[in-house]
């Protein structure tokens, strides 16, 4: 499908665009924000009934985000030769 000239560019784009990196970075960013809220913000325990919900949710999101990014790094997507739109995992 794509021409050979932009294959290198396309490869970089594909790895950035890998859905695992997208999910991982969004969840990690959310995790960091909630973690900071949990550490420095008002925990509003009257609403949560005790636990510092932002803190805990932040930690969990950060871990899940990291797992997705690690998965993307460990088993990257490799674009096939031009003429095929298939993308194979785990090459």
């Amino acid at each position: 499908m794509s021409t050979e000239t932009n294959r290198g560019f396309l490869g970089t784009l594909l790895s950035l665009f890998d859905i695992r990196n997208v999910i991982g970075s969004l969840l990690a960013v959310y995790g960091i924000i909630l973690l900071l809220m949990g550490l420095f913000g008002d925990p509003e325990v009257d609403k949560t009934g005790g636990p510092n919900a932002n803190l805990w949710a932040g930690v969990v999101l950060l871990v899940i985000g990291a797992v997705f990014i690690a998965w993307g790094l460990l088993r990257p997507v490799v674009p096939d030769a031009p003429g095929s739109s298939k993308v194979n995992e785990d090459k």
């Binding site: 959310y30 924000i33 909630l34 809220m37 949990g38 913000g41 008002d42 925990p43 509003e44 609403k47 949560t48 009934g49 919900a53 932002n54 949710a57």
Partner: peptide, 11 residues
């Protein structure tokens, strides 16, 4: 509105 603190509320 009842149970979520700001932050999780935004999420």
């Amino acid at each position: 509105a009842e149970v979520l603190p700001n932050g999780l509320l935004g999420l």
